[in-house]
């Protein structure tokens, strides 16, 4: 799917909403508008970047990426695709 040399080997992707608390997953891509994807990239969510899930529940998630804590709304975690490990 991706020819970008910086990408980790392509594996199965899943929505971030399925990742368990405490797990570290790898950001693959986000589905959504240009503005949203750009914003996420600026906040440090670029392909191949590890994400740790700090909190998950019925509402928003808290993740740790590049040393900062981000709150992601419920709708957003479903549109962020990650690879396990």
């Amino acid at each position: 799917m991706s020819l970008n040399s910086a990408d980790p080997p392509a594996g199965p992707v899943m929505p971030l909403s399925l990742a368990a608390v405490g797990r570290t997953v790898t950001f693959a891509r986000a589905e959504g508008g240009v503005g949203l994807i750009r914003r996420l990239a600026e906040m440090g969510l670029t392909p191949g970047e590890p994400i740790r899930v700090l909190h998950r529940g019925p509402g928003p998630f808290i993740i740790m990426v590049r040393g900062s804590r981000l709150v992601l709304g419920r709708g957003m975690v479903q549109r962020i695709l990650v690879r396990p490990g």
Partner: peptide, 17 residues
Amino acid sequence: SVCGDAAEIILADRRYG
């Protein structure tokens, strides 16, 4: 087509790199 992602994502990625 070459990188598999939109240019702005690649640019952000390079800056972070």
